[in-house]
Design a protein around this nucleic acid. Structure first.
Lengths: 344, 344
DNA sequence: GTGAAAGCGCTAACAT
DNA sequence: ATGTTAGCGCTTTCAC
């Protein structure tokens, strides 16, 4: 015979059965009152509410969810919570507005951790999952998809499986950055960015090469994707700035690269190099030089992720969709320094 | 007769019963295999695993939790999950290391939203809750506490109920900031900080007044708590700087105040005023002036919150405890400007 | 070792 | 309008 499990120190909480007994009504009536069913007679409502108050009854959401089949909760597996993440903020806000709870977890740039989180979310039968994917093998999610788990990827596509996706227009962003510097007279423009092992690093480096080619320039010595470490960035910056034909301007491929470059160059950065960064920089207005950046529309990305997920939950058979969100150039100073103003 | 609910488009997922039938074994055996019970014969293990693979079976964590009584999940209700929040990062990491899932939600500086989140977490029967409380009436949680819901508050105590709490040594932090400026020769030191309606704003303003008194100085015109708006901060800064007896140094009471002050003063801040901020500033090394701050030990706060919560989960009857975490002065430049260097 | 069956706390079909 | 009861998918007691 099944018995009350976990005989730990917690006092047993009253259930609907207890409330029903206390109120002298049927269980069904308690359920009705708890769910605000209007067909319950006022006298019964009063009795039940009194019993609820007397026993301090609180319905158990877990049992409700098990019975209902849906959790009213979506998961978000992002690289970092607890960091500035406007997309996550937008996800949370949109989810709330849609009446969905949000379970957010950090994958922390760790493939096995991402897997743990995603599998755990599937086992919890969340109503859907938004993932900012990391790593290159998501095939293990195929069975979950087949079983009907709604999923949306953000910032980059997932590998090996086909799910709805929302991401920035990386190519256009890099093109805009390049063009902006070119328009300000620069003819030697370098690029330092994330590793080409990463999807966005790959897209952005490729877009930069394409921009160089489109402007009839040689690619040699100007395009530097790689890991974002102080050493690597400093070394490549040195190549770009002190080669035979030094660059007068630089495009940085993501936030971490921009910060690393600023740290290497120091506060005099703008006197040595025009810079346009990809990604908005927190406190950009307090940083010297004031940074011209290509900003992603993170609010739209987060909102769209929830919308795509909701659409898929509502209609699991709808065609898979990829949404590309435009980026925006924010002119603030560092990208408008003309080449002749730079002492090299 | 109860029937399968939610007849929506999702394909029905196989359950343990299906696996048992497919494998030709009893339900109990499937459960054993899923939970790695070593007492199952290898032949049975093989049969069950084959059936699991064939059916794509994934155990339903909700049912497991309902039966087990515990969720293996703790909640964190913090002001913002998608902002820099080292304490939340530490909570997540510690929870993970402890084998607990984390459900984080933003209360968003909204009392009713905080209440919704907390009540929802209680109804979900999370194993425990960490809350960075906002607002001044948490009496509604009394029944939950009485029912045995473990709870820990972070950064400030909760109002009206007694729960474990971990927070920074606000008084010592303000004292350190004041003392540091005093040691560098300043005799007129102002304070701008958060509203005294907020607990930490109250503690810090009080500590600052105490520091003034302890150094035999008048409090008049130097202590300015209030809402953190650009206008209010600018106005009070004006009072402090351009009064009859202008201050040569300033203590800012939290991060938002520090940022607001820097925005008002502009990049030449350090030439007009020595500044020591409360709270670490992101990218502090890229901001000019490099900021001297009193940093909270957020990593310890987050870790301690989880530890306090775990301790209470393990022993609901242990005495309620408040842990005060020391702060640390980070000397970077803005706080070491001597008074005579300042043009006023 | 394996199997049958109870029950976690709730919802909802069905009966009254 | 209210009551009875099956069952969501799992764990676990108890008998074999």
């Amino acid at each position: 015979m099944g018995q009350t499990p976990a005989g730990n120190g917690r006092p047993r909480r009253p259930t609907m059965v207890d409330v029903a007994r206390e109120a002298g009504v049927a269980l069904r009536t308690v359920s009705r009152v708890v769910n605000n069913d209007p067909t319950v007679g006022p006298a019964y409502v009063a009795k039940v509410e009194a019993a609820i108050a007397a026993l301090n009854f609180r319905p158990d959401e877990r049992a409700r969810q098990l019975r209902l089949g849906v959790t009213g909760t979506i998961g978000a597996a992002v690289r970092r919570i607890a960091e500035v993440n406007p997309a996550l903020a937008a996800i949370e806000q949109t989810a709330r507005a849609t009446g969905l709870r949000l379970l957010a977890s950090s994958t922390d740039f760790d493939e096995s951790r991402e897997r743990d989180i995603l599998v755990s979310m599937c086992r919890q039968r969340l109503d859907g999952i938004i993932v900012e994917p990391f790593g290159n093998s998501h095939g293990y999610l195929e069975p979950e998809l087949a079983a009907g788990m709604p999923m949306v990827s953000m910032d980059r596509p997932m590998s090996g499986i086909s799910v709805d996706c929302v991401m920035s227009d990386n190519a256009a962003g890099i093109g805009t950055a390049f063009h902006h510097l070119h328009r300000h007279g620069h003819r030697r423009i370098g690029y330092i960015g994330d590793s080409e092992l990463v999807f966005s690093g790959r897209e952005r480096a490729a877009a930069f090469r394409a921009a160089l080619v489109a402007h009839g320039q040689s690619v040699a010595g100007l395009v530097h994707p790689g890991d974002i470490t102080a050493e690597r960035v400093a070394a490549d910056l040195d190549t770009v700035l002190h080669g035979p034909d030094p660059a007068t301007a630089l495009v940085t491929g993501n936030l971490d690269t921009t910060i690393a470059v600023l740290r290497v160059l120091g506060p005099q950065a703008a006197s040595r190099l025009a810079i346009v960064g990809f990604d908005e920089v927190p406190l950009a207005d307090l940083v010297r030089p004031a940074l011209t950046v290509v900003a992603q529309d993170t609010a739209t990305i987060g909102r769209t992720a929830v919308e795509l997920l909701s659409a898929r939950i509502a209609d699991p058979s709808r065609p898979v969709q990829t949404v590309i969100v435009p980026v925006e150039l924010k002119v603030r100073g560092s990208g408008e320094v003309p080449p002749h103003a730079i002492d090299s």
